[in-house]
């Protein structure tokens, strides 16, 4: 291609300069739709939630459109409510189980689908994505069918295999219900963790492994001293992300146990939802509890942004 002569290019720039916005202004115009939508749906509600949590907001106040100031009353009631404390405790247990199990499974399955010479690994690699597509509420309902005491699919499998002779009430016992709801959540959120591990593994060359094998290192030693240290950064990422997302679990609880049996599976998001959107619609209290949840997750988010996420540009 012929190289343009300078005057022509300069002329093009000059002509265009007249009708073109300055970069700063162009940037602002191009970001206007995003900024407006994010302000309406994200920024404003976050602030408004904080504001609501200091006011009395119930059905009567909503009708009148006036929210009387109550100071810290919602927070005082919140932390004096044994149900809220229990919900927080249950949430912590739920998160701890989910995060630990998910990291172990993600590393194991990540290594498994990385096996190029094993043909079944290719099938796993395709199917691992499947749970990501399932609507969480449908996932919950499917697992409540699996867990069903009378008609459940899980009991049927165990009967057919001859493992049990009495049906098991998987999600119906107060001592075990919380553990039962971790499984569907882990099932649904596993693909994300596995894919992150899988991507990290592809960055690890074979040279180190081959050199270590020549020196007589066993498979376990190679995993322990080569693969695991190199996977550590991505494990930390999964740890922070999954911890913050699992804190807000809602759909599986809603579909499988609705907080029950008794109050064995009340978690933080369920508490906020029940208080705000079911009679007597204590929206102020709901907002306060949702803000406590946001603060816990926000602290993790700040750790993530400050220390783990590498700047895009």
């Amino acid at each position: 291609m012929a190289i343009r002569s300078e005057p022509v290019a300069a002329e093009a720039l000059r002509r265009r300069g007249r009708r073109e916005l300055a970069p700063g202004r162009l940037g602002l115009v191009m970001n206007l739709p995003t900024l407006l939508t994010m302000a309406l749906v994200l920024a404003y509600p976050i602030g408004y939630a904080a504001w609501l949590s200091f006011h009395r907001v119930g059905p009567a106040q909503l009708r009148r459109g006036e929210f009387p100031w109550t100071g810290l009353d919602n927070y005082v009631r919140l932390f004096n409510d044994p149900l809220f404390i229990l919900s927080l405790k249950n949430t912590f247990i739920f998160v701890a189980i989910v995060v630990v199990v998910e990291i172990v499974l993600a590393v194991a399955i990540g290594l498994l689908i990385n096996q190029q010479r094993i043909w079944t690994s290719r099938i796993t690699r395709v199917l691992i994505l499947l749970p990501y597509a399932i609507p969480p509420i449908a996932n919950g309902l499917i697992w409540s069918f699996l867990y069903s005491f009378q008609f459940g699919f899980l009991n049927r499998i165990l009967f057919t295999l001859g493992v049990i002779d009495q049906p098991i009430n998987w999600a119906g016992h107060p001592e075990t219900a919380l553990y039962a709801v971790t499984v569907p959540y882990i099932w649904r959120t596993l693909p994300f963790a596995v894919l992150l591990v899988h991507a990290a593994l592809q960055g690890i060359g074979t040279e180190l492994h081959e050199a270590a094998a020549v020196d007589g290192a066993s498979t376990w030693q190679r995993f322990r001293h080569i693969t695991l240290p190199l996977l550590l950064p991505i494990i930390v990422v999964i740890l922070v992300l999954r911890t913050s997302f699992a804190f807000t679990v809602f759909e599986e609880i809603r579909a499988i146990t609705q907080g029950g049996p008794g109050d064995a599976t009340w978690v933080a998001a369920w508490y906020s939802y029940k208080k705000a959107f079911e009679p007597p619609n204590d929206i102020g209290l709901g907002a306060a509890s949702a803000w406590v949840l946001a603060l816990i997750v926000g602290a993790l988010a700040i750790v993530y942004v400050k220390t783990i996420y590498r700047r895009v540009v």
């Binding site: 749906v41 994200l42 404003y44 509600p45 976050i46 408004y48 939630a49 609501l52 913050s244 804190f247 807000t248 809602f250 998001a269 906020s272 939802y273 705000a276 929206i283 709901g286 907002a287 949702a290 803000w291 949840l293 946001a294 997750v297 926000g298 993790l300 988010a301 993530y304």
Partner: peptide, 11 residues
């Protein structure tokens, strides 16, 4: 990271 439930009440 913002929990949907925190957004839902004010929304």
């Amino acid at each position: 990271f913002v929990p949907v439930i925190t957004l839902m009440i004010p929304l």
